[in-house]
Amino acid sequence: MQLLKHLPPDEFSRRLSQGEIPLRIGPYVYNLQSNLSGVAAGIRTLYPDFTLAGPDDFVDYNVALLSRNALQRLRGEAEFLFDMKAPFDAIPIGQAYAFLEWGMNWCVSLHTNEYLKLHAAVVSRGDCAVIMPGTPGAGKSTLCAALGLRGWRILSDEHAMIPPNTTDVVPLCRPVGLKNESIEVIRRFSPDAVLGPVSKETHKGVVAHMKADLHPASHDTKPLRAKVMIFPRYARDEPQQLSPRRRSDSFILAAYHSFNYSLLCETGFEAMKTLIENIDCYDLVYHDLDWAIGAMDGLPDVQGEQ
């Protein structure tokens, strides 16, 4: 089993520029290509412990971040490519790394339907997985990163993938996307945080990704049982609290945060019902990360796992 970090730097660069870096990420193989040094550096920083698939393995997603021609290079632009087509407009090279990560999310958001997919971070303690759906700005990624730095396992920062009629989540561990102030917050929170390239002036502001496979089990592909769903909300001026929420409401909110609940029709409804019936749902209002982690450590479903 060869890890990315085992590739000598020059071989890595050559293979990346030719599109021969197939990485095993959760249940999928992503093949990466880029001719940009910033992107190469980002991949080496954030994915060194990922396994390389073999040259004869099936590739789920062929993605590339390229400056494709003289004009693009002259303008300092690059494009994200999926199946060698550009689904989005070209972006400035300075945003390339963040765009690669978004593009990799987009592949899963749009092109897989074997799971009910929620827009959510997933973390675990022992065998208990916690699903944290969140709107942008709700602080799910910041909390996810902080939990990862305090010994929780990060299963995903973006997708909770639930096989229908189970309460399982399938791990899809990739770097955690941090925005704006969150980047400094996490740097201050732990000196151990490993951050990739900083992309400025993206449509989401300043973006940097944090290495997420910090736990010994990070690359296990076995699904874990979800027992808790938490809807986090960062609020500086409100009292912090972790409070139970109603199931019917949580159902609707989770469906709202799903990429394919509607698409799956009855299957989606039954999958969500099975999940919601069998887990406990909470609202989490927080502004102090240590407080939030303490509150989550204290949950009955989590406590037995420590």
Binding site: T112, N113, L263
Partner: peptide, 9 residues
């Protein structure tokens, strides 16, 4: 699973 995803769409 990729074909299945397309069929579902």
């Amino acid at each position: 699973r990729h074909f299945d995803a397309a069929r579902l769409i």
